[in-house]
């Protein structure tokens, strides 16, 4: 090392003005690129994110097609194959797992110390968390489209315009589930505890929803489970995606998804606020 003083004419930090829109965009771009690179570096993550829903589509749905008839319910105007019915739910599944995966990576980052790099940035904490969430959602949406591409060859086809129209729905659903993951990451103290998230969050959310069965079917089987499904925000994420495939907006779902996104995000921002929650404090209690 010779001399680490720089000669590039970057203004001294104290002489810089407040951040403008351009700097915010630079920061957002940096976080997006970093998440994208991490994703590309983890090929097994990409493959497993596709294998899981494809197994459901190729094996589970094929078997269930014979035993579960789906009547004509909105947005479908005719009888549809069970594979068609289950596809929005599987898109939701990808977003759900991806949201939790992002949460897992935040816990990992915290344990490895990478999280501090983000948290000591001079940008507002809320902005950093939202940017991280957006990056996670961008990654999960690419996974969904990769899945839809393969499903198309399996004969599961939505109206062509539906693939475009569903993008905002995927984005909103991804934001809600990512924000939930972020909130959970603030309360999960260690990576090892994350298995509990699978059992207590992902599976109950997925199974107690309209992802696999229409709600009227659930109601026939168990009124209690039907109520639970109705309280589950994931149900609304799936319905929002389902209707969007056919160019329709399910307004209740839209309102619920937006509401929960706001609630989860607010919770995560509060949890990561150093004056309130911040898990790092709990974790580092012994390291003075």
């Amino acid at each position: 090392m010779t001399d680490i003083a720089g000669n590039v004419p970057l203004p001294r930090s104290s002489a810089r003005k407040r951040f403008g829109l351009m700097q915010y965009l630079v920061c957002l771009k940096g976080i997006l690129i970093r998440e994208g690179l991490r994703y590309l570096n983890q090929r097994e993550r990409f493959i497993s994110s596709l294998v899981r829903p494809l197994l459901w589509l190729f094996i589970f749905a094929a078997g269930f097609r014979q035993v579960l008839g789906v009547s004509i319910i909105p947005p479908y105007q005719t009888y549809v194959l069970y594979e068609v019915y289950i596809t929005p739910g599987l898109c939701g599944m990808i977003l759900l797992f991806s949201g939790m995966q992002s949460s897992l990576s935040m816990v990992y980052d915290r344990e490895m110390g990478n999280m501090r790099t983000l948290l000591v940035s001079p940008f507002p904490r809320w902005f950093l968390l939202v940017a991280k969430l957006l990056a996670g959602v961008a990654v999960s949406i690419t996974q969904v489209y990769a899945f839809l591409f393969i499903a198309w060859f399996w004969g599961v086809k939505a109206p062509p315009i539906g693939y475009l129209l569903t993008l905002p729905a995927l984005f909103l659903a991804g934001m809600m589930l990512g924000a939930l993951g972020m909130l959970l990451s603030s309360v999960v103290k260690q990576l090892e505890n994350f298995a509990g998230i699978m059992n207590f969050v992902i599976f109950p959310m997925y199974f107690a929803s309209s992802a696999l069965y229409p709600l009227w079917r659930v109601q026939e089987a168990s009124p209690l489970l039907y109520k639970i499904c109705q309280l589950n925000p994931f149900t609304y994420a799936v319905e929002l995606i389902r209707f969007a495939f056919y160019g329709q907006v399910e307004w209740t779902s839209l309102a619920v998804v937006c509401g929960f996104t706001l609630a989860f995000m607010t919770g995560a921002i509060i949890a990561y606020d150093p004056s309130r929650g911040l898990t790092i404090r709990k974790q580092e209690g012994g390291n003075t």
Partner: peptide, 10 residues
């Protein structure tokens, strides 16, 4: 580069 972006440096 990631760190630079966290400080708004293009």
């Amino acid at each position: 580069a990631y760190h630079a972006s966290l400080h708004g440096i293009g």
